[in-house]
Design a protein around this nucleic acid. Sequence first.
DNA 1: CGCAATATAGATCATTCGATCAAGAGCGAT
DNA 2: ATCGCTCTTGATCGAATGATCTATATTGCG
Lengths: 227, 227
Amino acid sequence: MAETSGAEHSETGERAVRRRLPPDERRRQIVDGAVAFFADVGIEGATRDLARRLGITQSLLFNYFATKEELVEAVYARVYLDRLSPDWPERLQDRSTPLRARLLAFYTEYSELIFQYEWMRIFMFSGLAGAALNRRYLDHLGKVILGPLLAELAESARSGPPPTMEDIWNLHGGIVYIGIRQHIYRMPCPDDPSVAITHAVDRFLYAFGLEAPSGAAAGVTASAARR
Amino acid sequence: MAETSGAEHSETGERAVRRRLPPDERRRQIVDGAVAFFADVGIEGATRDLARRLGITQSLLFNYFATKEELVEAVYARVYLDRLSPDWPERLQDRSTPLRARLLAFYTEYSELIFQYEWMRIFMFSGLAGAALNRRYLDHLGKVILGPLLAELAESARSGPPPTMEDIWNLHGGIVYIGIRQHIYRMPCPDDPSVAITHAVDRFLYAFGLEAPSGAAAGVTASAARR
DNA sequence: CGCAATATAGATCATTCGATCAAGAGCGAT
DNA sequence: ATCGCTCTTGATCGAATGATCTATATTGCG
Protein backbone atom coordinates (compact mmCIF):
# COMPACT_ATOMS: atom_id res chain seq x y z
CA MET A 1 0.00 0.00 0.00
CA ALA A 2 1.50 3.31 -1.04
CA GLU A 3 2.46 5.59 1.81
CA THR A 4 0.75 8.69 0.59
CA SER A 5 2.62 10.93 2.95
CA GLY A 6 4.96 10.68 5.86
CA ALA A 7 2.31 11.89 8.24
CA GLU A 8 1.12 8.52 9.47
CA HIS A 9 2.44 7.46 12.79
CA SER A 10 2.86 3.96 14.07
CA GLU A 11 -0.11 2.32 15.72
CA THR A 12 1.31 2.90 19.18
CA GLY A 13 -0.17 6.32 19.25
CA GLU A 14 2.59 8.87 19.71
CA ARG A 15 1.64 12.26 18.37
CA ALA A 16 2.12 12.82 14.65
CA VAL A 17 2.82 16.00 12.78
CA ARG A 18 -0.42 17.43 11.55
CA ARG A 19 -0.58 17.59 7.82
CA ARG A 20 -3.05 19.38 5.64
CA LEU A 21 -3.63 17.45 2.47
CA PRO A 22 -5.51 18.19 -0.74
CA PRO A 23 -8.92 16.56 -0.45
CA ASP A 24 -8.50 13.88 -3.07
CA GLU A 25 -5.09 12.95 -1.79
CA ARG A 26 -6.43 12.61 1.73
CA ARG A 27 -9.31 10.63 0.45
CA ARG A 28 -6.99 8.28 -1.36
CA GLN A 29 -4.89 7.93 1.78
CA ILE A 30 -7.97 7.03 3.79
CA VAL A 31 -9.13 4.43 1.30
CA ASP A 32 -5.65 2.91 1.15
CA GLY A 33 -5.51 2.74 4.91
CA ALA A 34 -9.01 1.34 5.09
CA VAL A 35 -8.14 -1.40 2.62
CA ALA A 36 -5.21 -2.50 4.76
CA PHE A 37 -7.14 -2.09 7.98
CA PHE A 38 -10.28 -3.94 6.94
CA ALA A 39 -8.13 -6.68 5.39
CA ASP A 40 -6.59 -7.21 8.80
CA VAL A 41 -9.56 -7.08 11.13
CA GLY A 42 -12.56 -7.46 8.85
CA ILE A 43 -15.21 -5.03 7.69
CA GLU A 44 -16.55 -4.81 11.22
CA GLY A 45 -13.40 -2.99 12.30
CA ALA A 46 -14.03 0.22 14.27
CA THR A 47 -13.64 3.58 12.58
CA ARG A 48 -11.70 4.85 15.59
CA ASP A 49 -9.08 2.17 15.16
CA LEU A 50 -8.81 2.94 11.48
CA ALA A 51 -8.38 6.63 12.24
CA ARG A 52 -5.69 5.91 14.81
CA ARG A 53 -3.82 3.79 12.33
CA LEU A 54 -4.01 6.61 9.80
CA GLY A 55 -2.90 9.18 12.34
CA ILE A 56 -6.06 11.24 11.93
CA THR A 57 -9.12 11.73 14.04
CA GLN A 58 -12.18 9.58 13.69
CA SER A 59 -14.44 12.48 12.83
CA LEU A 60 -12.32 13.33 9.85
CA LEU A 61 -13.33 10.09 8.21
CA PHE A 62 -16.88 11.35 8.14
CA ASN A 63 -15.82 14.47 6.32
CA TYR A 64 -14.86 12.30 3.38
CA PHE A 65 -17.46 9.57 3.69
CA ALA A 66 -20.98 10.23 4.91
CA THR A 67 -21.30 6.79 6.47
CA LYS A 68 -19.05 3.88 7.20
CA GLU A 69 -20.89 1.91 4.56
CA GLU A 70 -19.89 4.48 1.99
CA LEU A 71 -16.27 4.03 3.01
CA VAL A 72 -16.60 0.27 2.78
CA GLU A 73 -18.02 0.61 -0.70
CA ALA A 74 -15.03 2.73 -1.67
CA VAL A 75 -12.77 0.02 -0.27
CA TYR A 76 -14.58 -2.64 -2.27
CA ALA A 77 -14.39 -0.53 -5.40
CA ARG A 78 -10.68 0.05 -4.92
CA VAL A 79 -9.92 -3.58 -4.27
CA TYR A 80 -12.06 -4.96 -7.06
CA LEU A 81 -10.95 -2.36 -9.58
CA ASP A 82 -8.80 -3.56 -12.46
CA ARG A 83 -8.45 -6.99 -11.00
CA LEU A 84 -9.72 -8.53 -14.23
CA SER A 85 -7.62 -7.19 -17.07
CA PRO A 86 -9.86 -6.48 -20.07
CA ASP A 87 -7.45 -8.00 -22.58
CA TRP A 88 -7.40 -11.43 -20.99
CA PRO A 89 -10.38 -12.77 -22.90
CA GLU A 90 -8.84 -12.10 -26.27
CA ARG A 91 -5.39 -13.27 -25.20
CA LEU A 92 -6.89 -16.49 -23.89
CA GLN A 93 -8.51 -16.99 -27.28
CA ASP A 94 -5.45 -16.10 -29.35
CA ARG A 95 -4.90 -19.38 -31.13
CA SER A 96 -1.59 -18.31 -32.61
CA THR A 97 -0.21 -19.16 -29.17
CA PRO A 98 -0.32 -22.69 -27.76
CA LEU A 99 -3.07 -23.18 -25.22
CA ARG A 100 -0.58 -24.15 -22.55
CA ALA A 101 1.34 -20.89 -22.95
CA ARG A 102 -1.90 -18.94 -22.80
CA LEU A 103 -2.97 -20.70 -19.65
CA LEU A 104 0.38 -20.27 -17.98
CA ALA A 105 0.57 -16.61 -18.91
CA PHE A 106 -2.93 -15.97 -17.63
CA TYR A 107 -2.55 -17.75 -14.32
CA THR A 108 0.85 -16.27 -13.70
CA GLU A 109 -0.40 -12.74 -14.16
CA TYR A 110 -3.67 -13.46 -12.41
CA SER A 111 -2.00 -15.03 -9.40
CA GLU A 112 0.34 -12.08 -9.12
CA LEU A 113 -2.67 -9.79 -9.10
CA ILE A 114 -4.78 -11.63 -6.58
CA PHE A 115 -2.34 -13.48 -4.33
CA GLN A 116 -2.08 -10.42 -2.16
CA TYR A 117 -3.00 -10.07 1.45
CA GLU A 118 -5.48 -7.22 0.98
CA TRP A 119 -7.25 -8.64 -2.02
CA MET A 120 -7.53 -12.19 -0.76
CA ARG A 121 -8.90 -11.23 2.63
CA ILE A 122 -11.25 -8.48 1.55
CA PHE A 123 -12.56 -10.69 -1.21
CA MET A 124 -13.26 -13.39 1.36
CA PHE A 125 -14.76 -10.98 3.89
CA SER A 126 -17.02 -9.46 1.26
CA GLY A 127 -17.90 -12.90 -0.06
CA LEU A 128 -18.99 -14.09 3.36
CA ALA A 129 -20.98 -10.89 3.77
CA GLY A 130 -22.70 -11.53 0.44
CA ALA A 131 -21.53 -8.26 -1.06
CA ALA A 132 -22.95 -7.48 -4.48
CA LEU A 133 -19.53 -6.72 -5.92
CA ASN A 134 -18.41 -10.20 -5.02
CA ARG A 135 -21.17 -11.88 -6.97
CA ARG A 136 -20.66 -9.55 -9.90
CA TYR A 137 -16.97 -10.34 -9.93
CA LEU A 138 -17.49 -14.09 -9.92
CA ASP A 139 -20.18 -13.85 -12.57
CA HIS A 140 -17.85 -11.81 -14.70
CA LEU A 141 -14.95 -14.19 -14.10
CA GLY A 142 -17.08 -17.14 -15.16
CA LYS A 143 -18.53 -15.50 -18.23
CA VAL A 144 -15.56 -13.57 -19.53
CA ILE A 145 -12.58 -15.70 -18.53
CA LEU A 146 -13.52 -19.24 -17.61
CA GLY A 147 -16.25 -19.58 -20.23
CA PRO A 148 -13.98 -18.78 -23.16
CA LEU A 149 -11.32 -20.89 -21.52
CA LEU A 150 -13.67 -23.85 -21.60
CA ALA A 151 -14.38 -23.21 -25.26
CA GLU A 152 -10.69 -23.12 -26.07
CA LEU A 153 -10.05 -26.31 -24.17
CA ALA A 154 -13.00 -28.08 -25.79
CA GLU A 155 -11.65 -27.05 -29.18
CA SER A 156 -8.18 -28.41 -28.49
CA ALA A 157 -9.03 -31.46 -26.40
CA ARG A 158 -7.82 -34.61 -28.12
CA SER A 159 -8.88 -37.36 -25.76
CA GLY A 160 -11.01 -38.19 -22.79
CA PRO A 161 -14.48 -36.94 -21.99
CA PRO A 162 -15.21 -33.41 -23.17
CA PRO A 163 -14.37 -30.78 -20.56
CA THR A 164 -17.13 -29.16 -18.57
CA MET A 165 -17.38 -25.88 -16.75
CA GLU A 166 -16.98 -27.82 -13.54
CA ASP A 167 -13.59 -29.04 -14.74
CA ILE A 168 -12.51 -25.48 -15.43
CA TRP A 169 -13.63 -24.42 -11.97
CA ASN A 170 -11.58 -27.27 -10.57
CA LEU A 171 -8.44 -26.05 -12.29
CA HIS A 172 -9.18 -22.52 -11.19
CA GLY A 173 -9.98 -23.49 -7.62
CA GLY A 174 -6.88 -25.57 -7.20
CA ILE A 175 -4.77 -22.59 -8.15
CA VAL A 176 -6.70 -19.99 -6.19
CA TYR A 177 -6.50 -22.23 -3.14
CA ILE A 178 -2.80 -21.43 -2.94
CA GLY A 179 -3.70 -17.83 -2.17
CA ILE A 180 -6.32 -18.93 0.31
CA ARG A 181 -3.82 -21.05 2.20
CA GLN A 182 -1.34 -18.22 2.20
CA HIS A 183 -3.45 -15.22 3.13
CA ILE A 184 -6.63 -16.54 4.71
CA TYR A 185 -5.24 -19.46 6.68
CA ARG A 186 -1.75 -17.94 6.94
CA MET A 187 -0.12 -21.24 6.20
CA PRO A 188 3.48 -21.42 5.01
CA CYS A 189 3.46 -21.46 1.24
CA PRO A 190 6.07 -21.38 -1.53
CA ASP A 191 6.92 -17.76 -2.16
CA ASP A 192 6.77 -18.39 -5.90
CA PRO A 193 3.58 -20.24 -6.80
CA SER A 194 4.43 -20.56 -10.49
CA VAL A 195 5.90 -24.02 -10.13
CA ALA A 196 2.72 -25.34 -8.56
CA ILE A 197 0.65 -23.48 -11.12
CA THR A 198 2.64 -24.95 -13.98
CA HIS A 199 2.23 -28.45 -12.68
CA ALA A 200 -1.49 -27.95 -12.12
CA VAL A 201 -1.99 -26.64 -15.65
CA ASP A 202 0.09 -29.42 -17.12
CA ARG A 203 -1.79 -32.12 -15.26
CA PHE A 204 -5.00 -30.57 -16.45
CA LEU A 205 -4.00 -30.36 -20.08
CA TYR A 206 -2.46 -33.80 -20.05
CA ALA A 207 -5.76 -35.32 -19.02
CA PHE A 208 -7.29 -33.92 -22.21
CA GLY A 209 -4.52 -35.29 -24.38
CA LEU A 210 -2.71 -32.01 -24.65
CA GLU A 211 1.01 -31.35 -24.39
CA ALA A 212 3.04 -32.07 -21.29
CA PRO A 213 4.26 -35.61 -21.94
CA SER A 214 5.05 -37.39 -18.73
CA GLY A 215 8.74 -36.48 -18.68
CA ALA A 216 8.26 -32.72 -19.12
CA ALA A 217 9.69 -31.75 -15.76
CA ALA A 218 12.16 -29.37 -17.40
CA GLY A 219 9.60 -27.53 -19.48
CA VAL A 220 8.77 -23.87 -19.44
CA THR A 221 7.38 -22.83 -16.07
CA ALA A 222 4.71 -20.29 -15.53
CA SER A 223 7.08 -17.61 -14.30
CA ALA A 224 9.29 -17.99 -17.37
CA ALA A 225 6.23 -17.80 -19.60
CA ARG A 226 5.55 -14.25 -18.55
CA ARG A 227 5.33 -12.29 -21.77
CA MET B 1 -29.93 -28.34 12.87
CA ALA B 2 -32.11 -30.43 15.15
CA GLU B 3 -35.08 -28.65 16.60
CA THR B 4 -34.53 -29.58 20.19
CA SER B 5 -38.02 -28.65 21.23
CA GLY B 6 -41.07 -27.04 19.81
CA ALA B 7 -40.60 -23.96 21.92
CA GLU B 8 -38.64 -21.87 19.42
CA HIS B 9 -40.62 -19.21 17.67
CA SER B 10 -39.98 -17.71 14.30
CA GLU B 11 -37.57 -14.80 14.09
CA THR B 12 -40.41 -12.31 13.81
CA GLY B 13 -40.70 -12.05 17.52
CA GLU B 14 -44.18 -13.16 18.55
CA ARG B 15 -44.29 -14.47 22.08
CA ALA B 16 -43.26 -18.06 22.64
CA VAL B 17 -44.26 -20.45 25.35
CA ARG B 18 -41.65 -20.42 28.02
CA ARG B 19 -40.03 -23.77 28.47
CA ARG B 20 -37.87 -24.96 31.27
CA LEU B 21 -35.26 -27.32 29.94
CA PRO B 22 -32.69 -29.57 31.59
CA PRO B 23 -29.38 -27.68 31.59
CA ASP B 24 -27.46 -29.87 29.17
CA GLU B 25 -30.34 -29.99 26.73
CA ARG B 26 -30.64 -26.21 26.82
CA ARG B 27 -26.93 -25.91 26.42
CA ARG B 28 -27.00 -28.16 23.39
CA GLN B 29 -29.85 -26.15 21.93
CA ILE B 30 -27.90 -22.95 22.40
CA VAL B 31 -24.77 -24.31 20.78
CA ASP B 32 -26.79 -25.68 17.87
CA GLY B 33 -28.47 -22.34 17.38
CA ALA B 34 -25.20 -20.50 17.75
CA VAL B 35 -23.58 -22.65 15.07
CA ALA B 36 -26.34 -21.79 12.62
CA PHE B 37 -26.46 -18.15 13.68
CA PHE B 38 -22.72 -17.48 13.53
CA ALA B 39 -22.51 -19.33 10.23
CA ASP B 40 -25.03 -16.86 8.84
CA VAL B 41 -23.81 -13.54 10.18
CA GLY B 42 -20.29 -14.24 11.36
CA ILE B 43 -18.74 -14.54 14.79
CA GLU B 44 -19.36 -10.84 15.40
CA GLY B 45 -23.08 -11.49 15.48
CA ALA B 46 -24.83 -9.99 18.50
CA THR B 47 -25.84 -12.21 21.39
CA ARG B 48 -29.22 -10.50 21.47
CA ASP B 49 -29.95 -11.55 17.91
CA LEU B 50 -28.87 -15.09 18.68
CA ALA B 51 -31.14 -15.15 21.73
CA ARG B 52 -34.06 -13.85 19.69
CA ARG B 53 -33.52 -16.55 17.12
CA LEU B 54 -33.47 -19.16 19.85
CA GLY B 55 -36.58 -17.75 21.47
CA ILE B 56 -34.80 -17.14 24.76
CA THR B 57 -33.50 -14.06 26.49
CA GLN B 58 -30.01 -12.77 25.99
CA SER B 59 -29.15 -13.02 29.65
CA LEU B 60 -29.88 -16.73 29.62
CA LEU B 61 -26.95 -17.23 27.29
CA PHE B 62 -24.67 -16.01 30.04
CA ASN B 63 -26.04 -18.57 32.44
CA TYR B 64 -24.60 -21.27 30.24
CA PHE B 65 -21.49 -19.50 28.99
CA ALA B 66 -19.57 -17.04 31.13
CA THR B 67 -18.54 -14.96 28.15
CA LYS B 68 -19.35 -14.77 24.49
CA GLU B 69 -15.88 -16.04 23.74
CA GLU B 70 -16.65 -19.19 25.70
CA LEU B 71 -19.75 -19.70 23.59
CA VAL B 72 -17.76 -19.17 20.43
CA GLU B 73 -15.23 -21.74 21.58
CA ALA B 74 -18.06 -24.20 22.15
CA VAL B 75 -19.27 -23.46 18.63
CA TYR B 76 -15.81 -24.07 17.23
CA ALA B 77 -15.46 -27.27 19.19
CA ARG B 78 -18.83 -28.51 17.98
CA VAL B 79 -18.11 -27.66 14.39
CA TYR B 80 -14.57 -28.97 14.31
CA LEU B 81 -15.39 -32.11 16.25
CA ASP B 82 -15.21 -35.40 14.41
CA ARG B 83 -14.64 -33.71 11.14
CA LEU B 84 -11.49 -35.73 10.55
CA SER B 85 -12.37 -39.37 10.93
CA PRO B 86 -9.57 -41.17 12.79
CA ASP B 87 -9.61 -44.18 10.50
CA TRP B 88 -8.88 -42.24 7.33
CA PRO B 89 -5.11 -42.41 7.66
CA GLU B 90 -5.03 -46.16 7.76
CA ARG B 91 -7.66 -46.55 5.07
CA LEU B 92 -5.70 -44.20 2.83
CA GLN B 93 -2.67 -46.41 3.35
CA ASP B 94 -4.45 -49.71 2.86
CA ARG B 95 -2.62 -50.99 -0.18
CA SER B 96 -4.95 -53.91 -0.67
CA THR B 97 -7.24 -51.36 -2.27
CA PRO B 98 -6.28 -49.48 -5.44
CA LEU B 99 -5.09 -45.95 -4.77
CA ARG B 100 -7.83 -44.52 -6.94
CA ALA B 101 -10.55 -46.23 -4.91
CA ARG B 102 -8.98 -45.02 -1.70
CA LEU B 103 -8.84 -41.46 -2.97
CA LEU B 104 -12.39 -41.51 -4.24
CA ALA B 105 -13.71 -43.03 -1.04
CA PHE B 106 -11.88 -40.46 1.06
CA TYR B 107 -12.92 -37.41 -0.89
CA THR B 108 -16.49 -38.59 -1.20
CA GLU B 109 -16.85 -39.03 2.53
CA TYR B 110 -14.83 -35.94 3.30
CA SER B 111 -16.81 -33.74 0.96
CA GLU B 112 -20.05 -35.00 2.45
CA LEU B 113 -18.74 -34.04 5.85
CA ILE B 114 -17.46 -30.57 5.04
CA PHE B 115 -19.58 -29.35 2.14
CA GLN B 116 -22.12 -28.04 4.59
CA TYR B 117 -23.22 -24.50 5.12
CA GLU B 118 -22.33 -24.29 8.80
CA TRP B 119 -18.97 -25.98 8.55
CA MET B 120 -17.78 -24.14 5.47
CA ARG B 121 -18.69 -20.72 6.73
CA ILE B 122 -17.57 -21.10 10.32
CA PHE B 123 -14.33 -22.61 9.14
CA MET B 124 -13.80 -19.58 6.92
CA PHE B 125 -14.83 -17.08 9.58
CA SER B 126 -12.55 -18.68 12.12
CA GLY B 127 -9.76 -18.89 9.56
CA LEU B 128 -9.98 -15.17 8.83
CA ALA B 129 -10.02 -14.49 12.55
CA GLY B 130 -6.90 -16.57 12.98
CA ALA B 131 -8.53 -18.96 15.41
CA ALA B 132 -6.20 -21.51 16.96
CA LEU B 133 -8.52 -24.40 16.14
CA ASN B 134 -8.29 -23.51 12.48
CA ARG B 135 -4.51 -23.76 12.41
CA ARG B 136 -4.58 -26.95 14.43
CA TYR B 137 -7.07 -28.47 12.02
CA LEU B 138 -5.03 -27.61 8.96
CA ASP B 139 -1.83 -28.83 10.58
CA HIS B 140 -3.55 -32.05 11.43
CA LEU B 141 -5.02 -32.40 7.97
CA GLY B 142 -1.60 -31.92 6.41
CA LYS B 143 0.23 -34.28 8.72
CA VAL B 144 -2.32 -37.03 9.13
CA ILE B 145 -4.14 -37.09 5.82
CA LEU B 146 -2.29 -35.30 3.06
CA GLY B 147 1.18 -36.36 4.19
CA PRO B 148 0.43 -40.09 4.05
CA LEU B 149 -1.47 -39.44 0.85
CA LEU B 150 1.69 -37.99 -0.68
CA ALA B 151 3.65 -41.04 0.45
CA GLU B 152 1.13 -43.36 -1.13
CA LEU B 153 1.17 -41.44 -4.36
CA ALA B 154 4.96 -41.29 -4.45
CA GLU B 155 5.06 -45.04 -3.94
CA SER B 156 2.64 -45.71 -6.80
CA ALA B 157 3.68 -43.00 -9.24
CA ARG B 158 4.92 -44.52 -12.46
CA SER B 159 5.85 -41.51 -14.56
CA GLY B 160 6.48 -37.80 -14.51
CA PRO B 161 8.23 -35.77 -11.82
CA PRO B 162 7.79 -37.10 -8.29
CA PRO B 163 4.77 -35.60 -6.53
CA THR B 164 5.27 -32.91 -3.94
CA MET B 165 3.18 -31.73 -1.03
CA GLU B 166 2.25 -28.75 -3.15
CA ASP B 167 0.73 -31.09 -5.72
CA ILE B 168 -1.35 -32.76 -3.04
CA TRP B 169 -2.55 -29.40 -1.81
CA ASN B 170 -3.54 -28.56 -5.36
CA LEU B 171 -5.70 -31.67 -5.62
CA HIS B 172 -7.18 -30.96 -2.24
CA GLY B 173 -7.80 -27.29 -2.95
CA GLY B 174 -9.48 -27.93 -6.26
CA ILE B 175 -11.95 -30.18 -4.54
CA VAL B 176 -12.51 -28.02 -1.46
CA TYR B 177 -13.09 -25.06 -3.74
CA ILE B 178 -16.39 -26.63 -4.75
CA GLY B 179 -17.62 -26.14 -1.20
CA ILE B 180 -16.27 -22.62 -1.12
CA ARG B 181 -18.14 -21.70 -4.27
CA GLN B 182 -21.30 -23.24 -2.92
CA HIS B 183 -21.41 -21.98 0.65
CA ILE B 184 -19.09 -18.97 0.86
CA TYR B 185 -19.81 -17.37 -2.49
CA ARG B 186 -23.27 -18.92 -2.77
CA MET B 187 -22.77 -19.73 -6.40
CA PRO B 188 -24.93 -22.32 -8.13
CA CYS B 189 -23.14 -25.65 -7.92
CA PRO B 190 -23.91 -29.24 -8.89
CA ASP B 191 -25.84 -30.80 -6.06
CA ASP B 192 -23.72 -33.93 -6.31
CA PRO B 193 -20.04 -33.03 -6.42
CA SER B 194 -18.86 -36.62 -6.86
CA VAL B 195 -18.63 -36.36 -10.62
CA ALA B 196 -16.34 -33.37 -10.43
CA ILE B 197 -14.37 -35.04 -7.65
CA THR B 198 -13.94 -38.20 -9.69
CA HIS B 199 -12.68 -36.28 -12.69
CA ALA B 200 -10.30 -34.26 -10.56
CA VAL B 201 -8.87 -37.36 -8.93
CA ASP B 202 -8.56 -39.13 -12.26
CA ARG B 203 -6.79 -36.20 -13.90
CA PHE B 204 -4.45 -36.10 -10.95
CA LEU B 205 -3.62 -39.78 -11.00
CA TYR B 206 -3.33 -39.86 -14.76
CA ALA B 207 -0.59 -37.26 -14.63
CA PHE B 208 1.46 -39.62 -12.49
CA GLY B 209 0.94 -42.54 -14.84
CA LEU B 210 -1.78 -44.12 -12.76
CA GLU B 211 -5.03 -45.66 -13.90
CA ALA B 212 -7.73 -43.69 -15.66
CA PRO B 213 -6.84 -44.23 -19.31
CA SER B 214 -8.15 -41.45 -21.49
CA GLY B 215 -11.44 -43.14 -22.35
CA ALA B 216 -12.47 -43.91 -18.78
CA ALA B 217 -15.54 -41.71 -18.75
CA ALA B 218 -17.75 -44.60 -17.68
CA GLY B 219 -15.62 -45.67 -14.73
CA VAL B 220 -16.62 -45.88 -11.12
CA THR B 221 -17.55 -42.46 -9.81
CA ALA B 222 -16.85 -41.20 -6.34
CA SER B 223 -20.41 -41.61 -5.13
CA ALA B 224 -20.54 -45.22 -6.30
CA ALA B 225 -17.21 -45.88 -4.57
CA ARG B 226 -18.74 -45.25 -1.19
CA ARG B 227 -17.93 -48.27 0.88
C1' DC C 1 0.90 40.49 5.30
C1' DG C 2 -3.88 39.55 6.35
C1' DC C 3 -8.12 37.41 5.41
C1' DA C 4 -11.30 33.97 4.01
C1' DA C 5 -11.90 29.17 3.21
C1' DT C 6 -11.59 24.82 4.95
C1' DA C 7 -8.98 21.01 6.91
C1' DT C 8 -8.62 19.26 11.43
C1' DA C 9 -9.45 18.18 16.33
C1' DG C 10 -11.99 17.12 20.54
C1' DA C 11 -16.20 16.83 22.88
C1' DT C 12 -20.51 14.78 22.61
C1' DC C 13 -24.97 12.21 21.23
C1' DA C 14 -27.85 8.12 20.70
C1' DT C 15 -27.48 3.39 20.05
C1' DT C 16 -25.82 -1.08 20.64
C1' DC C 17 -22.66 -4.11 22.59
C1' DG C 18 -21.30 -7.74 26.25
C1' DA C 19 -22.23 -8.66 30.86
C1' DT C 20 -24.64 -8.48 35.64
C1' DC C 21 -28.34 -8.87 38.99
C1' DA C 22 -32.40 -9.35 41.64
C1' DA C 23 -37.02 -10.89 40.97
C1' DG C 24 -40.25 -14.06 39.03
C1' DA C 25 -41.86 -18.50 37.00
C1' DG C 26 -41.82 -23.44 36.14
C1' DC C 27 -40.88 -28.16 37.43
C1' DG C 28 -40.06 -32.19 40.55
C1' DA C 29 -40.32 -34.01 45.26
C1' DT C 30 -43.09 -34.59 49.15
C1' DA D 1 -51.55 -29.24 46.47
C1' DT D 2 -47.43 -26.79 47.74
C1' DC D 3 -42.89 -26.27 48.82
C1' DG D 4 -38.29 -25.30 47.31
C1' DC D 5 -34.81 -25.37 43.96
C1' DT D 6 -33.17 -23.40 39.88
C1' DC D 7 -34.15 -22.13 35.37
C1' DT D 8 -35.58 -17.92 33.18
C1' DT D 9 -36.59 -13.17 32.69
C1' DG D 10 -36.46 -7.95 32.32
C1' DA D 11 -34.09 -4.11 33.87
C1' DT D 12 -29.76 -2.19 33.88
C1' DC D 13 -24.60 -1.16 33.76
C1' DG D 14 -20.35 0.58 31.58
C1' DA D 15 -17.85 0.44 27.44
C1' DA D 16 -17.70 0.86 22.58
C1' DT D 17 -19.94 1.95 18.38
C1' DG D 18 -21.28 5.19 14.27
C1' DA D 19 -22.23 9.78 13.62
C1' DT D 20 -22.58 15.02 14.65
C1' DC D 21 -21.19 19.55 16.01
C1' DT D 22 -18.53 23.43 17.37
C1' DA D 23 -14.23 25.54 17.86
C1' DT D 24 -9.49 25.87 16.34
C1' DA D 25 -5.52 25.74 13.27
C1' DT D 26 -3.58 25.88 8.79
C1' DT D 27 -3.29 26.85 4.15
C1' DG D 28 -3.77 29.54 -0.22
C1' DC D 29 -4.94 33.80 -2.30
C1' DG D 30 -5.00 38.72 -2.91
